[in-house]
Nucleic acid binder design. Sequence first.
DNA 1: TCAACTCGGATAGAAAGTATCCGAGATCAT
DNA 2: ATGATCTCGGATACTTTCTATCCGAGTTGA
Lengths: 160, 160
Amino acid sequence: MKLSNGVEWALHSCVTLSQSRAPVRATRLAELHGIPQAYLAKHLQALSRAEIVHATAGQVGGYTLTRPAASVTMLEVVQAIDGTEPAYRCTEIRQRGPLAVPAEQCERPCAIARAMAAAQEAWYRALAAVSIADLAAAIDTDSDGTAMADVRRWLAGSRH
Amino acid sequence: MKLSNGVEWALHSCVTLSQSRAPVRATRLAELHGIPQAYLAKHLQALSRAEIVHATAGQVGGYTLTRPAASVTMLEVVQAIDGTEPAYRCTEIRQRGPLAVPAEQCERPCAIARAMAAAQEAWYRALAAVSIADLAAAIDTDSDGTAMADVRRWLAGSRH
DNA sequence: TCAACTCGGATAGAAAGTATCCGAGATCAT
DNA sequence: ATGATCTCGGATACTTTCTATCCGAGTTGA
Ligand code: SF4
Ligand code: SF4
């Protein structure tokens, strides 16, 4: 089980965007994090499609959060990048082979699929419990209250 | 986030093996589940390496569970197939870019990595709570107590 | 001793993820 | 109103991982 590293970039970008009411260009986000600008853009598109961020075109364009950071959960961001399909997809192999179970007995998922779904649900729940605002606050605390202020200052800097 | 479908095969195989004290060949397991025999063999090797199953070579060889089914958790099987590395790997992008955090402040994972680790832990915990024996019992219940008996009967049949 | 059968790791092919580019559309200055 | 410039957006190559398969090493039983 592997998670695209674009998820990390998207989360960082959302935290950064939560510190700015003005639109922030994709180029600047990439520059701030030291990551490929073109590839980050692709992930930001996914966030835009999920309506987590709003894109503004034009000379003073860029991305902004559509909702308050406290109401955007990590789960939403992760699902926007990684997709909503569960990690475990049942291939219904119980309906194959010499001991195939008749289809009418397969209305509900079997025990294995149920256990996997429960695990995924637990994962989702843990991610849904943390918002972007929580992350920003925690990062700020880790740095003794300087990190977010630094970000705001850097964002307010010249547009290059 | 995607999970190899070999995980499903491995879980089914473990449930099947829990119904037989005699070694079961990989060919028969594949036949029972209607899946590619050669590919299943590769996954069974992973289970063997993890010491979840024991492989016996020779004419009457095959695979057996090394421990009672009640003491083998789903988590062990999933990790044997899918690896133990967490889904989220931090690239430490906070140490890059113009606002790079000095390395001495990065001893402990940051808030994002901590939240992701907690979610993964919740996932692990849910899987660790279910054993192979639990799965076998649940599948048996779903089929009104005939499924495991059918499997045992089929396994006792001729070696082809 | 021999023959037959097993698992084991090494080898091709397919799918997804990664990284990049240029065009459509909108904003601001003229 | 017009044009230049800057933005995002989807379409395009490249790399890594997963999928599927094969044949050889080792073991058992006759
Ligand atoms: S539903 Fe359960 S029994 Fe059926 S294929 Fe999926 S894991 Fe196997
Ligand atoms: S530890 Fe946190 S801040 Fe550092 S790279 Fe990982 S997610 Fe980003």
